[in-house]
């Protein structure tokens, strides 16, 4: 049987890779994908603890995370399309109207 800490380590590694992508990549779409990766890592943590404790509440949390991720993807991609339409770029360094 695989100890729970291995699942949690995998989730931590995936979360940090997602965070690395958010911090390092400049393409807004790829940044978005990395956010999805982080959400999935948190889901894995929920499910690992649900199995660890034999309690299905973690599954409910994972279910809600998936639903919220779907909503977030719909809104976020709409924003990406709107930004691309008005700026002609998806480079997050070039989109800095709200910086000042």
């Amino acid at each position: 049987m695989v100890p729970t800490s291995n699942y949690l380590l995998l989730a931590a590694a995936l979360f940090c890779m997602g965070m690395l992508g958010v911090l390092v990549r400049r393409n807004a779409l790829v940044v978005f994908m990395c956010v999805e990766l982080m959400l999935n890592a948190s889901n894995l943590t929920f499910l690992a603890f649900a199995r660890h404790r034999g309690d299905m509440t973690g599954h409910i949390s994972a279910f809600f995370v998936i639903a919220v991720a779907a909503a977030e993807a719909a809104i976020g991609l709409a924003i990406v399309i709107a930004v691309f339409r008005s700026r002609g770029t998806l480079n997050v360094d070039d989109i800095r109207t709200m910086r000042h």
Binding site: V2, S5, A12, C16, L20, L23, H52
Partner: peptide, 30 residues
């Protein structure tokens, strides 16, 4: 920015790994 991002990710992983290693044992038998 990239070096700082990589450093942040690696140090977050180290911190999380430290915490996660404290979770002992296998899943509950059912």
């Amino acid at each position: 920015g990239r070096v700082a991002g990589a450093l942040a990710a690696v140090s977050l992983f180290a911190l999380l790994a430290l915490v996660v290693m404290g979770v002992k044992g296998a899943p509950t038998a059912m």
